[in-house]
Design a protein around this nucleic acid. Sequence first.
DNA 1: TGGCGAATTTTTATCCATAAAAAACAACTT
DNA 2: AAGTTGTTTTTTATGGATAAAAATTCGCCA
Lengths: 302, 302
Amino acid sequence: MKTDTVFKKAFNRTLDFIAQGEIEDPLPSENELRRRLGVSRTTIRKVLKELVCRDIVSTARSRAEERQIRPTDYFPDVETMSRNLHVEQQFMEWMLRGDTKPGTLINELDLARQFGVATSGIREFLIRFSRFGLLEKRPNSGWIFEGFTEDFALELFEIRVMFELRSARLFARQPDQSPLWAKLEALKRAHLDLLSEIEHRFHDFSSLDNRFHRLVNEASPNRFINDFYDIITFIFHYHYQWNKRDEKQRNHAALIEHLAYIDALLSHDPIGVELAATAHLSSAKETLMRSLVTMGRTDGSA
Amino acid sequence: MKTDTVFKKAFNRTLDFIAQGEIEDPLPSENELRRRLGVSRTTIRKVLKELVCRDIVSTARSRAEERQIRPTDYFPDVETMSRNLHVEQQFMEWMLRGDTKPGTLINELDLARQFGVATSGIREFLIRFSRFGLLEKRPNSGWIFEGFTEDFALELFEIRVMFELRSARLFARQPDQSPLWAKLEALKRAHLDLLSEIEHRFHDFSSLDNRFHRLVNEASPNRFINDFYDIITFIFHYHYQWNKRDEKQRNHAALIEHLAYIDALLSHDPIGVELAATAHLSSAKETLMRSLVTMGRTDGSA
DNA sequence: TGGCGAATTTTTATCCATAAAAAACAACTT
DNA sequence: AAGTTGTTTTTTATGGATAAAAATTCGCCA
């Protein structure tokens, strides 16, 4: 009953490795493969068996004399997605696309049927998701959706600003020998690279943004701040997936702000850091608030 | 398979109401009872049926001519505890009492057997509990217990101080007409009452503490701050349940600190508020840290 | 002895069944 | 019509079964 998505994903990755020559002729040991693919040896053996079955690898663990890898050898992507991820995506779609109103009751059974999973899957997801402050549980009854509202965004940003300023301040105060300075320099270069190719690579900003803010937190780790940043990441990930308006300009502007912020950090200038961080966060907030107002309207009006 | 703890708790509460004369002779309507007990009418009907069955109420819905309520009429407390609460208590006992070391792997099946529930119960609890920052999930493998360590306490208090100062500052800045001032006055009186009877009522401090800190947050609500305060409440609840050392002195000292803090708030004095809040929090932190060090030692040493 | 592959055991992920509780519906009374 | 109680339908809470994946154990050999 457990899905075999782990196996299928590992299998696809192995095909990739072979196709790209990263797995060479005498195949590495099971333990070596286990390390590379990050799954248990049990799964590796299943993958190897399947490779032999399909004549991609000979029984002697050698690639010699065997056939090319064809696109049809890969398992389709849907089959490599764990149930959790599937529920998450379906739920976010339901929540953000179908214009679900604040106060809507959530029905586990109904969602289970809609998403094609058992109720326990929905239930576990909702429990996990409830930490994001968008749901509330009524014991022995259902969940109530509190809405992705303006208030939510304001409260989120209030905390975000507190945390970010605190972390930035501490980052700037680090000793010169800290290895994080080098990481910051590297990140600055990545920003400059992206800036020079912003025309066609603007989608890559999101991951850079994440790396940057996480790096700022690294100087003075606090699990509660990190957990909070998970919320930010999650919300932004899905929110922007469905709000592509002005994506290039937005990312371009944010990139410039980041660079100012990074330079302020590099110069150990506390006032400058404060200003740059505040400026960046308030423009991020502006963007989110604006896109909240027009959310749900897919006709391009307003 | 679902437990009938809701029914049993409602039944016990009804007996209480009857015994205390809060439910009078012609019994109120089912709807009225539903409102009073906070359960569905289905459950109310089950309770009434049981009352008739046991000759506590006659079929005509009248108490007249029927027998007294005996202690044995009540369902035992264990049977009125939902599975969730049961798992929670067992788990906290396992974590705090059995000196579970940081890094310990958590085995769902094992805990399920130990606590006498199905694995899904453990699983849901762990997912819910993971928001407290003491657990981490390894997909397709178990959970890892990160330990109720000094670092944990330090990180917790760093955030707590940030949030508390922010809320206290905003509270002090409220307009004079705000209804919260009256609430604060009432709370001050409750503090003075408790102070005068501290000798035998010191256990009541905990709930007062909670009410006070939640009131401070009420002036400028933020769901993330509230959620964080849930963590504080939870941790303190269980932690102090097993660390009774110096409880009376501790609570007495905290009471005095609270009063200073309340007075600072009432006088709208921002500097005074800052000082009083900081003083109170750092002594709370001291207490927790000290009790952390001696935790696990039940022999009274050190 | 430490790494390898084979076989076995344990644990997690997932679905499903069912009792309890809630919610919705219906009929009745005043 | 609004409030009652009786009945039926839905939904949640909880246990249990089972396939997949992980972990462990066991010879084997360089």
